Computed example of a mutant assay.
Amino acid sequence: MPDDHPACRCVICHDYGDRDEADRMDLRTVDQIQEHGWSVVMVPADDEGPGFAYTIGLWHTHGVPELAMFGLDIETMHIMLNALGHQAAAGAVLENGRTCHDVIEGRPVILKAADLRWYREFFGRAISFYRRPPFPVLQVVWPDAKGRFLWQPGAEEHYLQSQPQLWLKPTEHPDGVWATLATG
């Protein structure tokens, strides 16, 4: 863990006395973080909504925010999150508002800080690992086929429904599948 990183309360850094009760997925996540520096959780699309993926361990290992992506094929998101993880491991600064290149071929992505009110809905395994928020999460927002982002005029409707806007409070989120998930 970096020297300037705040005290980590994750299950690797602190023994909560329940390691024997950890399920196979939790143990696999810990093993991957110890071996690679982070793990990627992939949640496939289902009847409730598009698939998504997010990292666990970047905050623990490198002191940079965890990353989350939505709406693409989960294997594609896995590759993209790993590419950003490798950039972070090499010293790249991952912060709110940053535009990142070399993640999607020929297109930038923009990092947006996720509001804490979305964490329980999407990042349960990370909460279990860190034992509680706050740990920072940046949403990796990708553009539509014409290079427009969610907040830009003319973005395609199906694209608007493919990704949530986690930087907004759930009560401020536009109608659609993501707002429905937030209000349950």
Rank of each mutant, 00 (worst) to 15 (best):
Q32G: 07
D47W: 02
V140A: 03
R131A: 11
E121C: 12
W118F: 11
V177H: 03
P143Q: 05
W167Y: 09
D15K: 07
Q152F: 03
G85Y: 04
E48T: 13
R148K: 12
R148D: 06
G184K: 12
D115R: 10
K146N: 13
G124R: 13
A145V: 14
G51L: 06
G71R: 05
G49M: 04
M80K: 04
H86D: 15
T76F: 08
A114M: 14
D18W: 05
A179H: 15
Q165G: 09
A89W: 06
R9C: 15
G184D: 10
I104H: 06
R117D: 14
H173S: 13
G124N: 12
H60R: 09
C8Y: 14
I104R: 12
S128Y: 02
T99N: 09
V41A: 08
G154H: 11
Q163H: 08
L27P: 01
M25F: 06
F70S: 09
W167F: 04
E105C: 07
V103M: 11
Q152C: 05
Q165W: 08
F70Y: 15
D73I: 01
Q139C: 04
A7W: 13
W178S: 03
E21V: 01
Q34N: 11
A155W: 01
P143D: 10
A126N: 06
H5Y: 11
E35R: 15
L138H: 06
Y54M: 07
S162G: 08
R131L: 04
E172G: 03
G37L: 03
L27A: 11
M69E: 09
E172P: 00
G184S: 13
M69P: 01
A113N: 05
D73T: 00
R107I: 00
L181R: 15
L181V: 10
K146V: 06
V177N: 07
G57D: 02
V40R: 01
D73W: 04
V41Y: 00
Q34D: 09
P50T: 02
D73V: 01
D175A: 14
Q87H: 13
E157H: 12
D3W: 13
L166V: 07
I79H: 09
G91A: 14
R24H: 01
G97P: 06
D31S: 07
L150W: 01
P164S: 11
S162A: 15
F123L: 09
V103L: 10
D4Q: 11
Y16S: 06
K112D: 03
G124K: 11
G71I: 07
S128P: 00
P133Y: 09
G63R: 00
T76N: 05
L168T: 06
K146R: 11
D46K: 05
I110V: 15
D115P: 03
T61F: 02
H101S: 15
D3F: 15
A92K: 14
L58S: 04
P2T: 14
A22F: 12
V109R: 05
F70R: 02
G91D: 14
P136Y: 00
Q163L: 03
K146Q: 13
F123I: 00
N82P: 00
P164E: 07
